[in-house]
Design a protein around this nucleic acid. Structure first.
Lengths: 200, 200
DNA sequence: CACTATTGATTGACGGATCAATCAATCACC
DNA sequence: GGTGATTGATTGATCCGTCAATCAATAGTG
């Protein structure tokens, strides 16, 4: 038996992974700790031993997803020399294959729904949105004045979220390239043809 | 006493309204029939008497929202003479004040989440999306060829959904005019400057 | 019009099932 | 032998759906 197989950190990871699987499989946050524990191959009592309440396990699972996404974005950004390249890097990271597949997309949607009733979950999603927004503004500021950058960043952010939302409900497998083209198209058009009308 | 106050249809409407209130108040579909019944001022048994299972009451509540939205859209479209006006009418209807406020927006998000695990809910949302898409394509077809119209319709649809999603999590009150401007801006730009790049 | 029968609305109470969380008791390892 | 990992069993609470019983209104009958 591998010595690390029963170490706490390994168990934590296994439980988080199992939670993610169950959530996306069932398409709901109404997963029981018994289901999660069973998939992780441990007892329900152990899940409570490591995470305390069920809510904490769910939040830890969210943090895991958020962290993965943040690292992916940071990695793509590190290789982007120009502002325009940074913009594409952000878009590409948002639809990276390991993020943009059915299971993960479903999990995102359920977390968004949970944020409606869980302030803690709302806070987590807020930091993600803020980071995405900040990255977008930084990339766009090289091409337009700040108010225009703010507005376009909101548009691109909303479009990305909308594409995710629709992908979650679509029947077939999520097609990342089409999603990227859609958002890139939107961004390019706004970059090419100046700022839109002023908002009311 | 009003004669119609205790008629079946009145009770149905009251229960659906109560369900909507509870769902948006609690920000979750984890509402008990007891809560809904209490808000409607009846017993839990009566809720079951009229709707059978809890699921049926939830689905009836979804249908109510969908129907309201459909009627709003149809009304706006009826007054739009040109294709361009039809496009604006669709956008305007999507963010009509009686649809685009916190309670309704929250309900939409929870219904989207439910569709992940409930085929019946998924079907309902599918017909809504199909109708929106069909309306958009019809309006756009007057300005571009069919493939371009299909693509732009998908983009506008995703953007609308994304704006809703973000409004659900935003703290302040939903600002319809900003949302309309954002989507109108997107549409106008694509109408003015031809079709985007071909998709892969 | 009186008087009863029938239907439907409505409720309180309850059974059965589920689930989160706890606890005392093992187990493994240093 | 002591410390932490692990578990089976249990508890307390919640909730859905059902059932028997009540009440109001309507219809039918002479």
């Amino acid at each position: 038996m591998i010595a690390s197989a029963n170490r706490p950190e390994t168990r934590r990871r296994a439980l988080i992974g199992a939670a993610l699987c169950e959530i996306s499989d069932r398409g709901s946050l109404d997963v029981t700790v018994a289901q999660i524990a069973a998939r992780a191959g441990v007892s329900t009592a152990l899940a409570h031993h490591y995470f305390g309440a069920k809510e904490d396990l769910i939040l830890a699972t969210m943090r895991h997803l958020l962290k993965e996404f943040g690292q992916k974005t940071a990695g793509e950004l590190r290789m982007a020399p120009t502002p325009r390249a940074r913009l594409s890097a952000i878009i590409r990271a948002s639809f990276a294959p390991d993020q943009f597949h059915r299971a993960t997309i479903s999990a995102w949607l359920t977390f968004y729904a949970k944020a409606l009733s869980s302030p803690a979950a709302a806070r987590l999603l807020h930091v993600y949105q803020s980071r995405l927004r900040s990255n977008l503004i930084h990339a766009l500021h090289g091409h337009m004045d700040r108010p225009a950058a703010l507005r376009l960043a909101d548009g691109i952010g909303a479009l990305i979220d909308g594409v995710y939302l629709r992908a979650a409900l679509a029947s077939g497998p999520a097609k990342a390239s089409a999603a990227i083209d859609l958002v890139e198209d939107y961004a390019s058009l706004h970059l090419a043809h100046g700022p839109g009308e002023a908002l009311s």
